[in-house]
């Protein structure tokens, strides 16, 4: 009804020659909604990370675990159903390897990361705390501006991890900062609480009254590929340094194979040596002489 009313009113206004102030300069609204879901076979640690992200980002919408790992394009439809234009998808393989997809649905691009070194908020080492759903500051390393693929990832992070002003469950204050840094060609994710140090506790070397306490979670994202489309399409970037965890594991196993092999070789060598050391039958042996 209201839309009909608005349309009628604007028509009337136009007819009257009244121009609405908003029509001059259309106000841009950063409308981001993120679908948050995982594949089947997720482990507890990955699940905790997923819930942590859901708590940190009030503009996310969680969905049920996805059955299929091969037909990922259906996520685009799921996102559309949920009115989401972004997606974070946790793909778990072999119940141990976590891959995270960040995608702009439905037209892309999308990035696939391998997630390593996960520490969730559940852990007791990180002592910070913040409001649930408060907007945070996003801090990016300057390295993100060095190459196009990092730049693209930065844009994706700002849209997916940045909480829009108009999100429904946000709280009005800014009390934490999320940082993305590039070290060792990986992206390191950290989340800190911002606290203000009282005057009497400040030392002479402090340049600011702010201090940070880590809240968590923390994890490392190793980019694998950047795709043209959402969950598919042409590859625009492929990380040459990425080593699949399967390969890494098989390398470790192969290193152990060497030990087994060398042991078997040694046994074979010993057997041969013993065979060579055997003496030929003595013609003067007791059994030969008195038989």
């Amino acid at each position: 009804m209201s839309t009909v009313f608005k349309a009628q009113k604007s028509k009337q206004d136009k007819a009257k020659g009244v121009v609405a102030a908003t029509e001059d300069k259309p106000v841009f609204r950063n409308k981001q909604r993120v679908l948050l879901l995982s594949s089947r076979g997720i482990t507890f640690r990955h699940r905790h990370l997923l819930t942590d992200l859901g708590d940190l980002l009030p503009h996310t919408k969680k969905d049920a675990k996805l059955d299929s790992k091969s037909k990922l394009h259906i996520i685009n439809e799921l996102a559309e159903l949920n009115n989401c234009n972004n997606c974070i998808f946790f793909e778990v393989r072999k119940r141990q390897d976590l891959y995270m997809w960040l995608a702009k649905t439905p037209n892309g691009p999308s990035v696939k990361f391998h997630i390593q070194n996960i520490h969730t908020m559940e852990e007791l080492k990180m002592t910070g705390n913040c409001l649930k759903g408060s907007r945070h500051i996003l801090s990016f390393d300057k390295n993100f501006e060095s190459t196009p693929h990092w730049l693209l990832m930065k844009e994706l992070f700002t849209q997916i991890f940045g909480i829009p002003k108009t999100a429904r469950r946000i709280k009005p204050f800014v009390d934490h900062v999320i940082s993305f840094s590039i070290v060792d060609n990986r992206i390191w994710f950290r989340n800190y609480q911002i606290t203000e140090k009282p005057l009497e506790h400040r030392s002479a070397t402090d340049t600011t009254d702010l201090t940070l306490v880590e809240i968590g979670p923390r994890f490392v994202m190793n980019p694998i590929r950047v795709f043209d489309g959402s969950f598919g399409g042409q590859t625009a970037f492929e990380n040459p340094e990425f080593v699949s965890p399967n390969v890494a594991r098989s390398n470790i196993k192969n290193a152990k194979v060497d030990r087994y092999k060398s042991r078997m070789d040694a046994i074979a060598k010993k057997d041969e040596k013993l065979k060579e050391a055997e003496m030929p039958e003595d013609p003067l042996a007791e059994t030969n002489v008195f038989a």
């Binding site: 996003l138 990016f140 300057k142 909480i163 829009p164 002003k165 800014v174």
Partner: peptide, 8 residues
Amino acid sequence: SETQSITS
């Protein structure tokens, strides 16, 4: 304030 993103 729409994005609140800062590059170091």
